[in-house]
Amino acid sequence: MKINLRKIIIGISGLLCFTIIFLFISRWDTKHKTIEIYRNGKYTKAVYKKNITPAKGAVTAICSFIVNNKEYLSKPSLASFPNSSPTIGENYYIIYNSMNPDESICFLNLEVPDSLNNLSGELNKIPIENYQKKVDSLIMATFLGGVNKYFPPYYSREEIERVLRK
């Protein structure tokens, strides 16, 4: 049996091109949705309802929140918050896109304190300064940190800071 090196090289090259295109599209979509959530963002509280395991080894939290008397779900990965131990039934801060509440980010590392559990409605900022700083540093890392900075869409530090100051 003779190995056709040319076919192997063409196959590997095609797979590599497909992977690069997929990464660009995936990163662009994630960054675009994230910036829209922050541009049109409102904060409220979400209740951590339960965990699901949609794929082997991946644990996803199910959090619900209310906007305009309608319940929405957020499904953050527990792996996104490695240094936290969220508790089912507790309230956590969430930011959602006020134009499309289906787009949201629940912060399972930012528990709503008992003194603010009566929080209802929407907020422009989290009322705890330290929590807001954590959220702001997360968005900066999303756009300017790691490999994300190499994928479009590209945002300057000034553009992101403008979104954060809104």
Rank of each mutant, 00 (worst) to 15 (best):
M1R: 07
I3M: 10
I3Y: 09
N4I: 10
N4L: 08
L5N: 09
K7E: 14
I9C: 01
I10C: 00
I10Q: 06
G11I: 05
G11T: 13
S13C: 13
G14D: 02
L16Q: 00
C17E: 03
F18T: 15
F18N: 01
T19V: 12
T19H: 04
T19Q: 06
I21Q: 03
F24I: 15
F24D: 09
I25W: 02
I25G: 13
I25Y: 06
S26G: 12
W28V: 04
T30M: 14
K31H: 05
K31F: 07
K31N: 11
K33H: 12
T34D: 11
E36I: 07
E36A: 15
E36N: 15
Y38P: 07
N40M: 02
N40G: 03
G41W: 03
G41A: 02
K42Y: 01
Y43T: 01
Y43S: 05
Y43D: 01
T44I: 01
K45C: 07
K49I: 15
K49Y: 04
N51E: 15
T53K: 14
T53Q: 15
A55S: 14
A58F: 00
V59Y: 01
T60Q: 11
T60S: 03
I62V: 15
S64M: 13
F65R: 07
V67T: 06
V67G: 07
N69R: 06
K70V: 08
E71Q: 15
E71N: 06
L73D: 11
L73E: 15
K75Y: 08
K75M: 13
P76M: 09
S77M: 08
L78Y: 12
A79H: 03
A79E: 11
S80P: 02
S80C: 02
F81S: 09
N83F: 11
S84D: 13
S85G: 06
S85D: 09
P86H: 11
T87S: 12
I88Y: 11
I88C: 13
G89S: 13
E90I: 06
N91P: 06
N91G: 02
Y92G: 03
Y92K: 05
I94P: 05
Y96P: 04
N97M: 03
N97C: 07
N100I: 02
E103T: 04
S104K: 10
S104E: 02
I105P: 09
L108V: 08
L108H: 06
L108I: 09
N109S: 14
L110S: 02
E111N: 07
V112M: 07
D114I: 00
D114K: 04
D114T: 00
S115T: 07
N117K: 14
L119E: 14
S120G: 08
S120D: 13
G121Q: 13
E122A: 15
N124G: 14
N124P: 04
K125A: 11
I126D: 05
I126Y: 08
P127M: 05
P127V: 09
E129C: 03
Y131R: 04
K134F: 01
D136Q: 08
S137K: 14
S137W: 09
I139F: 10
I139W: 01
M140G: 03
L144G: 08
L144Q: 15
G146N: 11
V147S: 14
Y150C: 10
F151T: 06
P152M: 12
P152V: 11
P153R: 10
Y154W: 13
E161F: 00
E161R: 12
R162S: 05
L164E: 01
R165A: 15
R165G: 01
K166N: 12
K166D: 05
